[in-house]
């Protein structure tokens, strides 16, 4: 899928899930619950390569999810 679409999607999710202690958890839960593995992989790859294009929160969410996936 076009990475621009995935980026827009994740940004929307971030905006709509309020910023507090559960925000990271809820975003990652959302991506696990509703995204196909391919979409997640594509996003992770893109964030890894072009982190500057993403918010702190998205970056952190991706880091956490990758860490968990490895564990």
């Amino acid at each position: 899928m076009d990475i621009k679409i995935l980026t827009h999607m994740v940004e929307q999710i971030e905006k709509n899930i309020p910023a507090h202690e559960e925000q990271y958890l809820r975003i990652s839960e959302h991506l696990i619950k509703f995204w196909t593995p391919q979409m997640r992989t594509d996003l992770f790859q893109e964030v890894k390569e072009n982190r500057q294009n993403y918010s702190e929160v998205v970056g952190q969410v991706v880091d956490d999810m990758r860490a968990k996936a490895k564990a």
Binding site: M1, D2, I5, K33, F34, W35, T36, M39
Partner: peptide, 10 residues
């Protein structure tokens, strides 16, 4: 999860 309709289109 599999693809949603808009994912299928994209």
């Amino acid at each position: 999860p599999g693809m949603r309709i808009p994912n299928m289109f994209d």
